[in-house]
Structure formats: structure tokens, C-alpha cells
């Protein structure tokens, strides 16, 4: 494991902690897309099926359990917590799951490195992760008043993806025979999805203004 990978994972972890803290402290999930959280839950479940079959390291196992547990906690709060669920922007969070899930599923059936249930589901999770942030970005654009923590959450998620690209470059240069084309291409697509957001996030930070995305 190299520094970029570790920093990437820690940034990912931090993004989730920021979201948990925001929702818990303010008792509000305003501006948070339940659709994106549920897509992440699908991503983590499909990818981490190997928790039961393939032990890589204690670090990997612990992180997988944390990602699963924290995502399901957020979903539980947004759906069932008696105070928090009332603050969910149900009417604005209208992105349709099937527009993302079906193409990713079809693509994973065609483009995979091995046609087995585990491998196809793993590949599906890679493709779905690349686009899972889209409902959140759409909701953000619709919500005029973006609070800082929601903005920081998305910024940290985007940073995690950028650090993973550096991790792949490092691994490519240091590990013989290391290559994973499907992951690389999906990861680059995923990072590109954030570029527009990054632009407005950095601009609002430099100008000391509240973040808002143009419609």
C-alpha cells in the first residue's frame, strides 16, 4: 500500500464522517441525496461480497465493514429517524435509479474480466460507483442554499477519487504486471464527473462566498 492509496482511503472515510456528523449534529439531512446513498449501498454490497471469500488484510476488512455500516446508518436515518426523515428533500431528489443501474448492469455483463457471479457483481459495482454521485450533484444544483458540510462532503469524495488515480500511477510505475483497465477507465470517468463541481467549489472558497451551482 502506498501513500496515495492510504490518503485516498482516509479522504473517503473522512467524507463519510463529515456526512454522519452533519446529519447527526444538525438533525437534518437537507441537501443530501438518499438516492446517491442507496446507490453507494448497492456498490458496497456488490463489491464487498468477497468479505466472506477472500481475505486480503485486516485493514481492508475493517474499512469494508465501516463503509457498509456507515452508509446503511445514513440510509436508516434518512428513511426512518423520526426527526431526520422529515428534513429529507424528497420532492427534489428525483433522479431515477434505473437510468444508472440498468446501463451499468448491462455493461458489466458485457465488459468484465471473468464471467462469474462474483466478478460481474464486482465489475457492476465499479461502474455504478463512477456515476453514483450524479443524483447528489443534481440535488445540489436544485438546492440553492448549499450548506458547507454538504459541499465539503462532495469535495472530499472527489479528492478521494483523484488520489486513487495517483495511487494507480504509482502502482503502475512500481509493480510489474500491474494493470486494471476497467477500474482505471471507470475511475477516470468518475473523477471527470466532479470537475465541474470542483470548479465552483474552489471559486466560492477563493471569493469567500457561499457555494452555489448554476442551473
Amino acid at each position: 500500500m502506498n501513500l496515495f492509496r492510504l490518503l485516498g482511503d482516509m479522504t473517503h472515510l473522512l467524507s463519510i464522517i463529515v456526512l454522519l456528523l452533519k446529519i447527526n449534529a444538525t438533525r437534518s439531512c437537507r441537501g443530501v441525496s438518499l438516492k446517491t446513498q442507496e446507490l453507494y449501498a448497492i456498490v458496497f454490497v456488490c463489491r464487498y461480497l468477497d468479505l466472506f471469500t477472500n481475505f486480503i488484510s485486516l485493514y481492508n476488512t475493517v474499512m469494508k465493514v465501516i463503509f457498509l455500516g456507515s452508509t446503511f446508518t445514513i440510509i436508516y436515518w434518512m428513511r426512518f429517524h423520526k426527526v431526520i426523515r422529515v428534513t429529507y428533500d424528497r420532492d427534489q431528489d428525483t433522479f431515477r435509479y434505473q437510468f444508472l443501474i440498468i446501463p451499468c448492469l448491462l455493461l458489466s455483463l458485457i465488459l468484465n474480466s471473468e464471467f462469474t457471479v462474483m466478478e460481474v457483481l464486482w465489475t457492476f459495482s465499479i461502474y455504478l460507483e463512477a456515476v453514483a454521485i450524479l443524483p447528489q450533484l443534481v440535488l445540489l444544483q436544485r438546492t440553492n442554499n448549499i450548506d458547507n458540510l454538504t459541499g465539503n462532503y462532495i469535495f472530499l469524495l472527489g479528492s478521494y477519487r483523484a488520489l486513487y488515480i495517483l495511487n494507480w500511477i504509482y502502482r503502475f510505475l512500481t509493480e510489474p504486471n500491474y494493470r486494471q483497465y476497467l477500474v482505471w477507465i471507470s475511475g477516470i470517468v468518475q473523477t471527470i464527473v466532479y470537475i465541474d463541481f470542483f470548479y465552483y467549489y474552489i471559486r466560492s472558497w477563493k471569493n469567500n462566498e457561499k457555494l452555489s451551482l448554476p442551473a
Binding site: R5, D9, H12, D50, N54, I56, N60, M63, K64, F67, S113, E114, E119, W122, Y164, N167, N177, Y178, R179, Q180, Y181, L182, V183
Partner: peptide, 10 residues
């Protein structure tokens, strides 16, 4: 695995 895909990342 086939194609050199690694599963050691998160």
C-alpha cells in the same frame, strides 16, 4: 484473476 484485474483496493 483474468485480465490482471486486482481486487485489493477498496
Amino acid at each position: 484473476t483474468a485480465g490482471g484485474e486486482h481486487h485489493d483496493e477498496l
